[in-house]
Structures are given as structure tokens and as C-alpha cells.
């Protein structure tokens, strides 16, 4: 069995274990038998109505952020890049916070007003950022994209800060949303986010070999036969779709998009043909585990999952980083 095969098996297995832990652990223990034996209605309800949608949503959000982060880091050739580098997430946040701030609720959309506004915010930002970057520099160099993302991100960030400063009662709600959470969303959110996850991930996966080539620079990729401009556009759009939809349903959950790709690279190498899929799996696993901890650690209260991702993720990352560097040094 080669290294890549092991990587896929290990990643998939940990994901399955994470899902099982995610649905079974809590104030009420849900035994494994509930999956096929629905005689215990309470357990069945908890499993299918509460825990399963929560675990799946956490998994989808984690997977989206991780694969988008891996693609952005590769495309921008920058280990510090993450899904939020482009500023799309700030757009999504502004959309969501505007909804909360003004207490908006469009009758036809009901409780989905927030995620839909958020997605609109993300989409607008994406077009503005890419349009502006193209306006500045027709060839859309990586530096141009990063700088444009920073410009739009900080501008939108100031809009967020303004609303937070002006807000009164909804402050807790806004902060809570910004810190990120996947609780009490239900199946409908999954249905809403799933198409974007599928489309976005598929677009990125289509560009796995191009990402490998672009690691050596745009010029080199061009020489190797990559249609750099088109591929870059595809990757930016794919990553933005994933980021925008993930933020829209869960808030800005940090760390997953930055660190999961790095951990995956350290463990299994930086070949994007595998890195994208493996990051997808590992991102899902990490967020499911983090969400499990977030809702159980000070039970019955819950912590925002964004707090836990950094809290757990950073030491784990530090450990892997340390081990890998030590190994390399010997």
C-alpha cells in the first residue's frame, strides 16, 4: 500500500469516527443501534433531527473552508493565505450583520433571510474584488489579488466595526454569529449549502493539476501549458463560492481554512491531486470534533465553535510542525 492510499484510508476513517462521536456524545447518549433500530423515539429524534444535521453541517463547512484554503494557498503561493484572504468572507459577514442589525426578515424567506443576505454579500464582494483586480492589472497577478482582497476586507471590516459600535441589544447576537456556530440549523441549511459545496469543490478539483503547476509561478505554469488566466479565475470563483456559502450558514469560523491544508501537507505532501481531497476530508473531521467539544465542554452551555477551532487546532498544528521539522533535521 502506498503512502497516498494510506492517506485516504486514514482520513476517511477518522472522518467516520468523528461523525459517530459527533452524533452519539452529548447530554443524551445515542447508541449506535439507533441507526437501524427506531424503537427509541427520543434517541431517533435526537439523532436525525438534531445531531445528524449539525454534524453534517459542521462537516460541510469544515470541508469547504479547508479545500478553499488549500486552493488559495497554492494559487497565491502564500502559506499565510486562507479562505478569508480574498475578502469574500467579510462581504458575507456584512450581509449577515446587516440582517441582524436592522432586524430584517423578508416574509418569503423567513429565517433564511440571514444566510441568503450573507450569500448575496459574499457574491457581490467576489465580483467587486475580481473586477477591481482585473481593472488594476489585466493579467491579475497574485500580488494584485492579495492586495485587492486586503483593501476590500479592511473596508468591509470597518463597516462591521461601525455596526457593532452602533448596536445595542443585538451585540451578543452579532458577536455570537461572527464567532461562528453550526448549532440549531437543521436540514434546510444543509440543503441550502450543499449545492455550493459540491460545485465549488468540483471546480477546485478540476484544477488540481493546474494548482501544482502554479506553485512554480504563473510563468512556469504558462510554459507547462496551463491557461493561467482562465484557471486562476476558476480557482478564485470556486474558492469564493465555498467560502461565501460556508460563512453564510455558520459565521466566520477561523483557523480551519488556514491550518488544515498545512497539516495535510506536512503529513501527506503538497501534491494538489491529493491535497485538495484530503484537506476536504480532514477539514470536515476537524470541525466536527471541534463542534463536539464546543457543545459538550461546558455543557449544558455551548461555546462558539470558532473559539474551539483555534484552541484545539493551534496546539495540534504546533505538534505536527515540531515533529516534521525535527524529522527533517535528522
Amino acid at each position: 500500500m502506498n503512502k497516498t492510499g494510506i492517506a485516504y484510508i486514514v482520513s476517511a476513517a477518522t472522518l467516520v469516527v468523528a461523525v459517530w462521536l459527533g452524533v452519539s456524545i452529548g447530554t443524551v447518549k445515542v447508541p449506535l443501534s439507533t441507526f437501524w433500530d427506531s424503537t427509541d423515539t427520543t434517541a431517533t429524534n435526537i439523532l436525525w433531527k438534531i445531531r445528524m444535521p449539525r454534524v453534517i453541517l459542521a462537516g460541510l463547512v469544515g470541508a469547504s473552508l479547508a479545500i478553499a484554503g488549500a486552493a488559495f494557498q497554492g494559487l497565491l503561493k502564500n502559506p499565510l493565505a486562507d479562505p478569508y484572504t480574498l475578502g469574500v468572507s467579510s462581504g458575507a459577514s456584512v450581509g449577515a450583520v446587516v440582517t441582524l442589525f436592522f432586524g430584517l426578515s423578508i416574509p418569503m424567506l423567513g429565517t433564511y433571510t440571514l444566510p441568503i443576505f450573507s450569500m448575496v454579500g459574499a457574491a457581490l464582494t467576489m465580483f467587486l474584488v475580481l473586477g477591481f483586480a482585473r481593472l488594476v492589472d489585466r493579467s491579475m497577478k497574485m500580488e494584485t489579488i492579495i492586495l485587492t482582497g486586503i483593501i476590500f476586507g479592511s473596508f468591509l471590516g470597518s463597516v462591521l466595526s461601525l455596526m457593532i459600535a452602533l448596536t445595542g441589544e443585538e451585540l451578543r447576537q452579532i458577536i455570537g454569529w461572527l464567532l461562528g456556530s453550526v448549532s440549531m440549523r437543521g436540514w434546510k441549511y444543509i440543503v441550502m449549502v450543499l449545492p455550493f459545496v459540491v460545485i465549488g469543490s468540483f471546480i477546485l478539483w478540476l484544477n488540481r493539476r493546474e494548482l501544482n503547476a502554479m506553485l512554480f509561478g504563473e510563468e512556469r505554469a504558462h510554459h507547462l501549458g496551463v491557461n493561467v488566466r482562465r484557471r486562476k479565475f476558476m480557482i478564485l470563483i470556486g474558492g469564493s463560492i465555498l467560502t461565501g456559502s460556508a460563512v453564510a450558514v455558520s459565521g466566520t469560523i477561523g483557523f480551519v481554512g488556514l491550518v488544515v491544508p498545512h497539516m495535510t501537507r506536512l503529513l501527506w505532501g503538497s501534491d494538489h491531486r491529493h491535497l485538495l481531497t484530503l484537506s476536504f476530508l480532514n477539514g470536515a473531521t476537524l470541525l466536527i470534533i471541534c463542534d463536539l467539544i464546543a457543545r459538550t465542554i461546558i455543557s449544558p452551555s455551548e461555546l462558539p465553535v470558532g473559539v474551539i477551532t483555534s484552541f484545539i487546532g493551534a496546539p495540534v498544528f504546533a505538534y505536527i510542525f515540531y515533529r516534521q521539522r525535527r524529522k527533517g533535521a535528522i
Binding site: 494557498q73 503561493k77 512554480f216 509561478g217 507547462l224 501549458g225 501537507r265
Partner: peptide, 23 residues
């Protein structure tokens, strides 16, 4: 074949050479 250049993430030698088959 370009001049020598830097790269951000690590590729193995074979992965690097394999990219030549992209076209």
C-alpha cells in the same frame, strides 16, 4: 527552461518532473 527560481511549498523531485507531462 527558466532561470532558477524559488517555490513556496515543497514538491518531491518526481512530482516536479511529472508536471512536465501536463500538456
Amino acid at each position: 527552461l527558466p532561470q532558477l527560481h524559488a517555490h513556496a511549498f515543497s514538491h518531491t523531485v518526481k512530482e516536479t518532473v511529472s508536471l512536465g507531462r501536463y500538456p
